[in-house]
Nucleic acid binder design. Structure first.
Length: 436
RNA sequence: GCGUUCUUGGUGAAGCGGUUAACACACCUGACUGUGACUCAGGCAUGCAUGGGUUCGAUCCCCAUAGAGCGCCCCA
């Protein structure tokens, strides 16, 4: 038996329904925010990711799917979405648009060769946005508000927004220096991983779970103390905007993000649910004012974020949020001699907008009733010889268990009326109504 | 890349060296030739991830491989 590749998964059944539902919410949400959809290739020239993500990051050094195409070109399956979108932004000269900023969103699979684990796959789906052209803190705040709004629409409660600022290039460099000076005399006290980080990416030491409680960790300089005036002001504005949008947040000096390209605002949204697992960061992002310049020749600031669908799905499971619509309006129980009438009736119901199904397995009546229950059918229609002779339908309301004899011509009107009444009830409430 | 636990029908699983692989749910058939959650009688793994080895004998012990889960690193 051939199995799926390690770290991949199939989507079907309830999960498939849930994902389609979420994708619809995403689309509607991005429309409201007035963002434009961008789709870029799933593979790009390897060099793009080396430049964008950073030569030294783990993602580029040991996690990419690289291959040579038949023309000997070095290609890489995209490990993240930002690089491709920026490439597209430059290549399609979106920087020359008459409407600025350019606000984009993307959605699709990403690839990283990693050991699979909770909330981590080799092929995984990310939804993300990139906003180009604005330096304003309003853009930062808006970007942060997107995942927050999405999680709210889906009904997630246990989430926390953590923000920090790395400042501009000048501030960032000054801080980096300070950090190195701080840890240098204490290098021996740190864990093995942190010693590695010290030379590779000192900012990451702050993220360490092992050394978290160490005295020198607590005394470590904080990014926000090293911000210059302009950077500080920017960060304050972001916070001010978050407050007026009613988005609760906390400042975490520890979040520095792994990718090299961030400047100013960085943020993460985490699932703060007990027992969620170690991969509890649902989304992350921030501002990258130098990245576009590094990739192309245009100097355009940007800000964006990406969220992992798999982790979102895990969070929904943990909070026991069910977004599936597993009901059927009508289930027709056919008999051997009425199949023709049954399929014709089915067609009519579907044309009229009802979700309808029947039996294709020649099941007996008992099994049909059972199946109708499993499919959560609201109405059952029995269509047998008796009904055929009398030109009637036996319609059974599966809520009240009442049975009606109805003329075939009156069926649609009957159902319309029945569902009309239902619409005002609690059943329809919940998150999806807010999306109308 | 490292550590660790695991892999038995459609599903949940018992068995941990001895020849019919338990039990439950689901499913199918019939009692019941048109009304469902009851009852009863049947049926449903020639096989225990794959490949080797040890043994008179292996689902059970050993080795390898693959996959899954969890943690580290890193990230969404």
């Amino acid at each position: 038996m051939i199995q799926k590749p390690k770290g991949t998964y199939d989507v079907y059944g309830k999960e498939g329904q849930t994902i389609l539902y979420i994708e619809n919410v995403l689309r509607a949400l991005m429309d409201r925010y007035d963002y434009e959809y961008v789709r870029t290739p799933h593979f790009e020239a390897s060099e793009l990711f080396h430049r964008a993500v950073g030569e030294t990051t783990d993602i580029v050094t040991k996690e990419t799917y690289d291959f040579l195409d038949r023309g000997e070109r070095k290609m890489t399956l995209r490990p993240e979405g930002t690089a491709g979108v920026i490439r597209s932004f430059i290549e399609n000269k979106m920087y020359a648009r008459d409407v600025m900023p350019v606000k984009t969103w993307y959605y699709g699979p990403m690839y990283r060769y990693e050991r699979p684990q909770a909330g981590r796959f080799r092929e995984f789906y990310q939804f993300g946005v990139e906003v180009f052209g604005s330096q304003d803190a309003m853009a930062d705040a808006e970007v942060i508000s997107i995942p927050v709004t999405l999680y709210k629409l889906l009904g997630l409660k246990g989430i926390k927004v953590n923000i920090n600022s790395l400042g501009d290039t000048e501030s960032r460099e000054k801080y980096r220096e300070a950090l190195i000076q701080h840890f240098k005399p204490h290098l021996s006290e740190l864990c093995e991983d942190c010693k590695e980080r010290f030379s590779k990416n000192p900012l990451r030491i702050l993220d360490c779970k092992v050394d978290h409680d160490l005295e020198i960790m607590k005394k470590a300089p904080k990014t926000i103390d090293y911000l210059n005036e302009a950077s500080k002001k920017h960060f304050e504005k972001v916070q001010e905007y978050l407050k007026v949008m009613d988005i609760p947040y906390s400042i975490h000096p520890g979040i520095v993000r792994g990718l090299d390209y961030y400047t100013h605002t960085v943020f993460e949204v985490e699932a703060s649910v007990e027992g969620f697992g170690s991969q509890n960061v649902l989304c992350g992002g921030g501002r990258y004012n130098n990245l576009v310049k590094n990739i192309g020749d245009v100097d355009v600031p940007g800000v964006g974020f990406a969220l992992g669908m798999e982790r979102l799905m895990t969070a929904l499971r943990y909070e026991q949020i069910d977004l599936c619509n597993n009901t059927l309006d009508v289930y027709i129980i056919p008999f051997e001699e009425t199949k023709k009438e049954a399929i014709s009736l089915l067609q009519e119901l579907r044309l009229s907008g009802f979700k309808a199904d029947t039996d294709y397995m020649n099941k007996n009546i008992k099994a049909n009733f059972k199946q109708a229950d499993k499919k959560n059918a609201r109405f059952l229609i029995l269509l047998g010889e008796d009904e055929l002779e009398q030109n009637l339908l036996t319609v059974k309301d599966n809520h009240t268990k009442e049975e009606y004899k109805i003329q075939k011509e009156e069926l649609i009107a009957f159902l319309d009326e029945a569902f009309e009444e239902e619409c005002t009830c609690e059943e329809c409430g919940g998150s999806h109504e807010e999306m109308e």
